[in-house]
């Protein structure tokens, strides 16, 4: 049971930064914009949040600072890709590189003093429950926030008018423009939201998950989040499941190694990637479904005519 609890909670926690970043990117891509710079925005968020904690600000302020840093970085992308209509692939890649460089520069002065990590919640009765307590009710608040964001984004995208408009902009910006929606402004908001979420993911890494600052501490998680969105065929629930699957396989392969499973560690290390790709490809075999959810104008620059 203890082992199961360790695997289960480890999975949920490992998936949390991916959920934040991938859900943010999902909203961006649904608006027809491809921002490849998640890694850079996460690093900015991680650096700023860590700085805020060492500077003595409270945890909520630090996390907010991380989120805002991600949003600020995404604004840079927005100006390049939306206002100046540069190639979105190039602008996104530039942001990824820029973010890792700038965060490393900011982080030079941080030293590496340990910080107090974000604590798990302690809900009066629930956290004390015998089995369910340690399993479900002792995570840090951001884990629950990630799940709340999943619910909110699913609801927003598919149950609100604003969500419908956002998706319309991603399908056909010309049509949206023709019927009077401010395409560029909507895309800006989506990009900023994506930056906010990537910043949150970064903040989660540096103040909750591994409470320290090291250069490039995201170690590729931004790219995994990006891939998750594609493999999840732009659907929120699959993003969530994909993140859990990836996190779960990561934990399981480590458990397998430590248990002395008779499989080389190199192969076990590849398992999370293999499993996630295989499962998500299997559930996306239906081409029609794929076409239904793929934002038709993804990564195509839009210039309002006239």
């Amino acid at each position: 049971m203890e082992l199961f609890t360790a695997i289960f909670t480890g999975t949920i926690v490992a998936a949390t930064p991916l959920i934040f970043a991938a859900l943010g990117e999902l909203v961006v891509e649904k608006s027809g914009v491809l921002n490849l710079g998640i890694e850079g925005m996460m690093l900015m968020g991680a650096a700023l949040a860590f700085w805020a904690v060492t500077a003595g600000y409270s945890m909520p302020v630090a996390i907010l600072a991380g989120a805002l840093a991600g949003a600020a970085a995404s604004l840079l992308f927005g100006v390049l890709a939306l206002t100046f209509l540069t190639n979105q692939y190039a602008a996104g890649l530039a942001l990824a590189i820029f973010g890792s460089g700038v965060s490393a520069f900011i982080g030079r002065g941080f030293g590496s003093d340990p910080i107090e990590a974000l604590h798990g919640v302690n809900i009066a009765i629930l956290s004390g429950l015998p089995v369910l307590g340690p399993l479900l009710f002792r995570f840090d608040p951001l884990v629950y926030l990630a799940l709340a964001m999943f619910v909110a984004i699913s609801w927003f995208l598919y149950r609100t008018k604003a969500g419908l408009i956002l998706r319309t902009v991603g399908e056909s910006p010309q049509t949206s423009h023709a019927i009077g929606y401010p395409v560029i402004r909507i895309r800006y908001m989506a990009v900023l939201f994506g930056g906010l979420m990537a910043g949150l993911a970064g903040a989660y890494l540096s103040v909750a998950y591994t409470p320290l600052w090291v250069e490039n501490m995201t170690a590729g998680k931004g790219w995994i989040a990006l891939a998750l969105v594609v493999f999840a065929t732009w659907r929120p629930l699959r993003v969530l499941l994909g993140a859990w699957l990836f996190g779960g396989m990561t934990i399981l392969q480590l458990q397998g190694q430590a248990l002395g499973l008779q499989v080389p560690s190199e192969l076990l290390s590849a398992l999370p990637y293999l499993a996630t790709i295989v499962v998500l490809v299997l559930i996306s075999r239906n081409r029609q479904m794929l076409a239904l959810h793929f934002p038709a104008s993804l990564a195509k620059p839009f210039r309002p005519a006239g």
Binding site: G10, A14, L205, Y209, T250, L254, Q255, A258, S265, S269
Partner: peptide, 24 residues
Amino acid sequence: NAIFLNSWFDPGKEKEAAKTLLSQ
């Protein structure tokens, strides 16, 4: 019990590896 990360640098994975070892 030995765990190899198959990466020179990945604090997240390292954390999970350490927790795994503790849980075992």
